[in-house]
Design a protein around this nucleic acid. Structure first.
Lengths: 361, 361
DNA sequence: CGACTCAATGTAAGCGCTTACATGAAATTT
DNA sequence: AAATTTCATGTAAGCGCTTACATTGAGTCG
């Protein structure tokens, strides 16, 4: 175990230990650490020496208790396994780092009750600002947050109606745009694979967007086929199987996110169903995966990194007491790739080889 | 803003406020919260009522200071953007949750100096146990950790030689296995795309594994072509271009991870180079991506979730003072899919459909 | 050379919580 | 009914740090 020194794992050295060793008061040590300008170079040197020798690290709890500042923000995301959150969070953290702020991350597994616990946990740990995903949660929490005076920013959605400041995009409108294109292409039998909508307002907004587009196009907004499923490639694949089992197969499968779409496409290939000749597929998010799979996925691009960075800036200014900034909308953008085409008028004929690669474009 | 009560954001209520309102001592309130069994149902009810009315949440710093327990572990990963870490971490966190432990996550961007800061930050924040990736870091840190008595577990590697307990796999041996297969298949012109090795002992162990296999096969271990590149699909693609520019093209490109491999494969397709007919490609990690891309990637499967879960169990037992468990090796496994084949002896004949592109050779 | 300034340092009062110990009432025993 | 045990609750001492305020001693000025 011990590699050299025989120093056992005594409890960590305290400010007082350092003070004693450097022959100064604890106040001086504290000043050395926090506002070195107030201390003579000589004493400072002596103190730092002691700090080094003892391997001193301040006790965060005590510091917070006394100073009432934590320089810590918190973020709660549904899951770390979803690349879109990971990516935005990385950017968020990088930006916070520039301001000397530490980020605490927790994940809720898409469960409201867990999220609530996490919010309390992060608050208790002194998070001075909070980043949350989506608006949908109990009002109690918002009043709790308000009571504790904790600035909270909602990401991944943009909705100026809501009282909380948000940064993100209009999920409904973005999906509506995509759906309009799909309809314009001639698709009428539309199927949807969505993430579970109950605890996920992004998912439900996206589904709504599709309905809206259908209504606007004069289609019956209830005529579409919807499957809700957990997040994961395999779930997407499985949902696709079920969809293809319907007596009336859809001509397009619109997925609530790219991962589900990737599963659908993989499954299509496995079943010998050609995309987009036999069935079109669309995604949402534009994660890296989207451009790597074959055929490359037509999807909605979301500026994740930018959202993370912007969220950090906004939250910092809120915590600094510069008032509530206005909610900020980020632009999404259709990424036309190879999985969306007009429905084939003819019955799809069983394909001969693995197809001759639909002439791109 | 305020939805009902006019309560402004006064500073958060304290234990004392609750005590006063419930007409008991602070001790009783504390007991209600921490060991409710010791309190009469009646008083408990009264206290809880007060807690609710006040929206009380304990001050973490104060609690830690007094109780000397934080129930918090820390983990530092190189980046959240890499799915393998995200996935293992998710499992790690889930397992810790069962023990009532909160996880604090930080990311170091593959930089040793940042990691060091993060270690100190997490320590100061009361992390009682630490999960770190890979062995490679300054000895000062290990003595710091030891001095503070913070159990530390190293993941993603297995090396019983090292003094720190680790859970993971033998990167070198795993890659050696794969490389042996590659060589057995007849490949002699081997190229490698690796992550940067300097701050990443997993990457360097993997490269070493390839050299080892070559040596064992009687090949000159310096005859291979190595490109180091940052993490990312596009970087993999770019490296692939450079490799294909060599006057003597390799017959196989072994990649340090699946993401680089995905980039290489995407690029091959873009260049009209067939995989595996013209060039084989291998990966490492077996992330979801590997089975979705076309052709599906031959790679080394690593049990990320299991590693995360196991890491949690081991670290918990270490923190509980149950002594140093032995390092634990997890099995990796070759996943044969479609990107690795014997090098074509004959000149690759231009195939009719997809391409006559690759002029080369 | 004494009155005054000012910078460096020390003193000590909390910050909000937990918990060992003290207290007193109710339950149990003798 | 007195003695004893038991259990709920209160009292108060810190936990390690920051910081307002007090102190000291050196420099400045007339």
């Amino acid at each position: 175990m011990g590699s050299g020194t025989t120093r056992s794992a005594t409890s960590a050295p305290t400010l007082e230990d350092v003070a004693e060793r450097a022959r100064v008061s604890t106040a001086t040590v504290s000043r050395c650490l926090n506002s070195p300008g107030q201390v003579t170079a000589a004493t400072r040197e002596r103190v730092m020496q002691a700090v080094r020798e003892l391997g001193y690290a301040p006790n965060f709890g005590a510091r917070v208790l006394a100073a009432k500042r934590t320089d810590t923000f918190g973020a709660i995301i549904p899951t770390m396994e979803n690349a879109i959150f990971a990516r935005a969070l990385q950017a968020f953290q990088e930006e916070l780092g520039k301001h000397g702020i530490t980020l605490l991350v927790a994940s809720s597994s898409y469960r409201l009750d867990i999220e609530e616990d996490q919010i309390r946990a992060l608050t208790a740990r002194g998070a001075e600002g909070l980043l949350l995903i989506g608006h949908h949660r109990s009002p109690d929490i918002y009043s709790f947050l308000q009571q504790h005076g904790i600035p909270t920013l909602i990401a991944w959605v943009y909705d100026p109606q809501e009282p909380q400041v948000s940064v993100g995009f209009d999920n409904r409108r973005a999906m509506e745009m995509l759906a309009s294109e799909v309809i314009a292409l001639g698709h009428r039998r539309i199927a949807v694979i969505s993430a579970e909508q109950s605890a996920n307002d992004r998912a439900s907004a996206r589904v709504e967007g599709i309905r809206l587009a259908m209504r606007k196009a004069g289609l019956d907004p209830d005529s579409y086929d919807l499957i809700e499923t957990p997040y994961g490639i395999d779930f997407g694949a499985e949902a696709f199987v079920r969809l293809m089992d319907r007596e009336q197969r859809p001509t397009v499968v619109m997925c609530g996110n790219d991962v589900l779409a990737a599963g659908a496409i993989r499954q299509a290939r496995a079943m010998g169903i050609r995309v987009p000749e036999d069935v079109s597929v669309t995604g949402f998010d534009d994660i890296e995966l989207a451009s790597v799979i074959v055929p490359a996925l037509t999807t909605v691009h979301v500026p994740h990194r930018e959202m993370g960075r912007e969220a950090a800036r906004m939250l910092v200014s809120m915590v600094r007491g510069e008032g509530q900034p206005a909610s900020r909308e980020l632009a999404t953008e259709l990424r036309w790739r190879d999985t969306l085409a007009a429905p084939s008028q003819t019955q799809p004929k069983p394909d001969t080889a693995v197809s001759k690669q639909h002439g791109f474009k």
